[in-house]
Amino acid sequence: MNKNSEIVLHVEDLGVSFGGLEAIAKIDISVARGEFIAILGPSGCGKSTLLNVLSGLLPPTRGTVSVEGRPMYRPESEAPHVGYVFQEHRLLPWRTVKQNLELVLASSKVPQDRWDDNIDNILETLHISRYKDSWPLRLSGGERQRVSIARALLVEPAYVMMDEPFSTLDELTARTLRQELIEIWQRTGTTIVFVTHSIREATFLADRIVILTRGPALVDDSYTVPIDRPRTYEDPRIGQIEAEIVERVLSVWEPEKK
């Protein structure tokens, strides 16, 4: 992994309000290049709002978001490219897998003469080469999510956001995809911001886990996962750390029950 100390994403004093309603109180996060961070937060805490800000969909009410040292919100032509793997695949069903990938490449900075090679490589990496000319509706849930991951990585993004991307899949498929995601991440060095409800998933995947409070969102704790890679589900330390984080999370989300 070519992780280094260069900060790719820097969020400082971020606040978001809708009318008088505060969705995000105050968030400060820095993510280093090549880092894999997981964001844990209860339902309704403002995770989606945070992702909307980090994807460029929603300007913050307060604070700054910098990507590679420059403001996130800048003229369209200079705006950074980010990848996003949504909870649902969000592929255009009337375009084949290849056409879906070409659509996002057309708006990226990747030169056109590299498109075919890049598409072939990423499909090969995700084991879905044979579906290159298939319609998305012909694919299984796991295969569609693989295409969605391919789409996010193809645009050579500053970072990739993932919003509970495996939550709608069966556990066996989700496990396989988590393992493959780790392999791709290690190979490409892509920076990943992964949002999940699952503490075990966060522990298995991430270098660092950021815990948000119940809404309005506030970063309450940040936990570095002290397990070397490669990690396995059978590793007893995963369970131990999961239990430790559950303790911390409960003290943040439900302090009255402590």
Partner: peptide
């Protein structure tokens, strides 16, 4: 509208 969001995130030009 989810597809609209996807299109915005990937900065796909308005006519495309």
């Amino acid at each position: 509208f989810y597809l609209d969001e996807m299109v915005q995130v990937y900065r796909i030009p308005i006519w495309t």
